[in-house]
Structures are given as structure tokens and as C-alpha cells.
Computed example of a mutant assay.
Amino acid sequence: MAAAGAAGLTVALTACGGSDDDSSSSSGSSASTDSNGATDSAGSTGSTGSSESASTGGAAAGNALTTTAEIPEGGGKVFEAEKVVVVQPTAGEYKAFSSVCTHAGCAVKSVADGLINCPCHQSNFSITDGSVKSGPAKKPLPEVKIAVSGDSITLA
């Protein structure tokens, strides 16, 4: 029963529609995933039996997420399965935010020119603090705790 609720929550959080209701469907889509779990296209991920953390939106704390070399200065990378975007606003400074847009629950898909971008309704968020820079979103992206040890970035 709890697994069905978690699956419904995943669909509700990643779905983007014209309404703000909590109803969800069970239609699934697939997305290509690289070895770090980052994806380049929209889609929901299936349950693999791994534990999920409410504070990180999917990845268990302490699991390696990426390396510092994978996060460009002034940019970042979206990790769809973990529902997190990791950024490097200035050299050597790494931050992470939820990748769930605060406007309609769509997943942000890219980081460019110092902005985290949501393709659904063109909301844009600052890589410095997650604040709204443009679009219909009114609330900033929530910060997600990460730990950087050597060249490894993990969810804290």
C-alpha cells in the first residue's frame, strides 16, 4: 500500500498539467539515464526497491551522486531519478536544490547562464540561491543538503 502511495506521489510531482489537483494517472514514460543517474529527457522512473528519502526526493543520503568534475562552474546538472539539481555558482562552491518546479510540479531540465530552467512554463531559478528569476513560479527551489569530499558529491 505504501509503495502505491509513493508511486502516485512520484507521478504527481513529475506530472505537469493545467490543473493543480492531486489526481494522478499510472501512465509511465521512459528516459535515458547515464551511469550517474542523470537524464536528458522527461520521464518517470520505476521503483527499484531502493529506499527513498523525503528530504532529497529519492536518493538515499550518503550515496555518491556525482563528481565535482561533472558540475561546470556557473552551471550544473539535473539528476532526475534523485529529483535534485547540483550547481557550482562560483569556483569550488557546490549547492543542490530540488528539481521539482515550485509552480506546477514539473521537473526542471537544464542549467544554463546561471539559471535553472523549467521547460513547462518557463520559470527560471538562480543557481546561487534557488530564487525565482522569471516565470510564473513564486517560490524558490528548496535547497537540498549535499556533502563534498575530495571530488565526490553525495546527498547528505
Rank of each mutant, 00 (worst) to 15 (best):
M1N: 04
A2V: 14
A3N: 14
G5E: 11
A7N: 11
A7T: 12
G8R: 09
G8F: 09
L9A: 09
L9K: 06
V11W: 06
V11E: 12
V11G: 08
A12N: 15
T14M: 14
A15S: 07
C16P: 06
G17P: 04
G18P: 07
S19W: 10
S23I: 13
S23C: 11
S24Q: 03
S25V: 06
S26E: 10
S27W: 07
G28D: 02
S30L: 09
S30M: 09
A31D: 07
A31S: 14
S32M: 14
T33K: 07
T33I: 13
D34G: 03
N36T: 14
G37E: 07
D40N: 08
D40W: 06
A42S: 14
A42F: 12
G43H: 01
S44F: 05
G46W: 11
S47L: 15
G49L: 13
E52G: 13
S53A: 15
A54S: 07
A54L: 06
S55G: 02
G57R: 08
A60L: 07
A61K: 14
A61D: 11
G62I: 03
N63G: 05
N63T: 13
L65A: 06
L65M: 10
T66Y: 11
T67W: 07
T67G: 15
T68D: 08
A69F: 05
A69G: 12
E70L: 03
E70C: 01
E70P: 00
P72W: 08
P72G: 09
G75Y: 13
G76W: 05
G76E: 05
K77A: 01
K77L: 10
K77V: 09
K77C: 02
E80K: 15
A81M: 04
K83S: 12
V84H: 01
V85Y: 00
V86G: 03
V87P: 00
V87L: 02
V87W: 00
Q88K: 05
P89A: 07
T90Y: 05
T90W: 07
A91E: 08
A91P: 01
G92F: 02
E93V: 15
Y94V: 05
A96C: 03
F97H: 01
S98G: 05
S98T: 13
S99Q: 08
T102Q: 11
H103D: 03
H103T: 05
H103S: 04
A104N: 08
G105I: 09
G105A: 10
A107H: 05
V108M: 02
K109D: 11
S110H: 01
V111T: 06
D113I: 03
N117I: 12
N117L: 12
C120S: 07
H121Q: 14
H121K: 09
Q122D: 14
Q122V: 10
S123N: 02
S123A: 10
N124C: 10
N124I: 04
F125S: 01
F125L: 02
S126F: 12
S126M: 10
T128K: 08
T128Q: 10
V132R: 00
V132P: 00
S134F: 01
S134L: 00
G135T: 09
P136D: 14
A137Y: 09
K138N: 14
K139M: 15
K139S: 15
P140G: 06
P140F: 08
P140C: 04
P140A: 13
L141R: 00
L141F: 00
E143Q: 11
I146V: 11
I146H: 03
I146N: 04
V148N: 08
G150F: 09
D151S: 15
I153Q: 06
T154Y: 07
T154N: 10
T154K: 12
A156V: 05
